[in-house]
């Protein structure tokens, strides 16, 4: 098999789907965060793959670099929130935080 763009895209799609699944179904707030990371990584793979096979340049990679950085920042903030949540509610169960309900 000639490894080409579709393969990478497939992997990234699978990763994205998995990440989505994790976000939707995980009870643990950190688990949800992990799902988000998966999704971000999936999109990163996409960027790099496209820059490698279609664009033949490095723009996608630069994008991927930015995504990584921002993902890190976002992870930091998110985890801070998780910690605050843990402090306030005593648990990281996502269902405890439902003040938006009704």
């Amino acid at each position: 098999m000639n490894v080409g763009l579709p393969h990478f895209l497939t992997i990234s799609a699978a990763l994205f789907a998995l990440g989505l699944f994790a976000v939707m179904s995980r009870r643990n707030a950190i688990g949800i965060l992990m799902g988000v990371e998966l999704m971000l990584n999936a999109s990163n793979i996409n960027f790099v793959a496209f820059s490698r096979y279609v664009q033949h340049g490095i723009d996608g990679q630069i994008m991927a670099a930015f995504v990584i950085v921002l993902a890190a920042a976002e992870a930091a903030v998110a985890l801070a929130i998780v910690l605050a949540m843990f402090r306030n509610f005593g648990t990281v169960h996502a269902d405890t935080v439902q003040s938006l309900k009704r």
């Binding site: 996502a94 003040s99 938006l100 309900k101 009704r102």
Partner: peptide, 17 residues
Amino acid sequence: FRRIQTGRIQTYLAYVS
């Protein structure tokens, strides 16, 4: 319809998807 508003992000994400 009230039950749409679960207050849980994950549900909203599901709706969005």
